[in-house]
Nucleic acid binder design. Structure first.
Lengths: 150, 150
DNA sequence: ATGCATGCAAATTGTTTGCACTTCA
DNA sequence: TGAAGTGCAAACAATTTGCATGCAT
């Protein structure tokens, strides 16, 4: 649940052309709580009678991601997922066996971020990333499934 | 550069059938220093006259990854990459603009691993993962390119 | 008006699968 | 011998692209 008007404002000030389709897509992204793949966004916007082509969805998501209005993430579902960039920086714990996704506050990564920046002169794009592993229940049940997912 | 015989031994003791094709693939993975995608492995093993089908390469890589003889990683090249699992746990810093890949010792992630395990009862599969961002040179040159890569 | 965006359809790319045949254990 | 593995070709899914048309600025 993000402020649609605020997002529109960000788009306008970025200079990106605000078309009917992009408006629809942004509305869907704002309403949505969490992530969505291009296909999912497409499904949602297709419900409204003024539908949008799938390729347009793809193009819009990429543009908006480049402007940092959306962030892109790989949650291990073999497709890119997107989310409105909000104020709280957060990341994700993804269970590779049951698919559960938990949020991880950015503070957990602050030290690592600093160390990498200092020691390697490397600026990590730590805005939204996924950490794969096993949740408590699945760990109990024993290993198996997808191994080194990254 | 990994010890081919040692790897074969691991495969044998895992119970996996040791075929001509898998031997060839493993030899290629051992000779190779670093990662390779299925396609790259395929290219390499195709040079030898006793070539291997691409689908066989895919199937072998998956099997070997499940046995933890190989680790799989997404380095942002939009294809899975594989590497022989060695002794030193390490991860990667991937520059999203120039593509440079640097190694990051596991020690950098130890604290995070522990915190996540403790606070979320979540066991991160921290064997080999990629951290995207910008290297010093590219950061200097200014932003652009791929944004939130995860 | 003019250039950026869209729709449509077709192309690409990475990866997977069905099936008859081969081969390792 | 029998189950597991292979080659081949075809299927797939996610994403991209060419091009004529359309619409914000």
């Amino acid at each position: 649940m993000h402020d649609f008007e605020a997002v529109l404002q960000r788009v306008r000030s970025s200079g990106l052309r605000l078309t009917r389709q992009r408006r629809i897509i942004l509305r869907a992204m704002c309403d949505l709580d969490g992530h969505a793949s291009a296909e999912e966004v497409y499904q949602r916007v297709s419900r409204s009678r003024s539908d949008v082509d799938l390729s347009t969805v793809y193009r819009a998501l990429v543009r908006l991601r480049d402007l940092r209005i959306l962030s892109q993430i790989d949650l291990g579902r073999s497709c890119a997922e997107f989310e409105i960039v909000g104020e709280r920086r957060h990341h994700h714990l993804v269970c590779v066996s049951c698919g559960t996704v938990m949020e991880l506050d950015h503070s957990y990564l602050a030290a690592l971020e600093e160390a990498v920046r200092h020691d390697f002169d490397f600026d990590p794009a730590f805005d939204h990333f996924a950490l794969f592993g096993h949740c408590a229940e699945c760990a109990k049940r024993g290993p198996g499934f997808r191994a080194g997912a990254g």
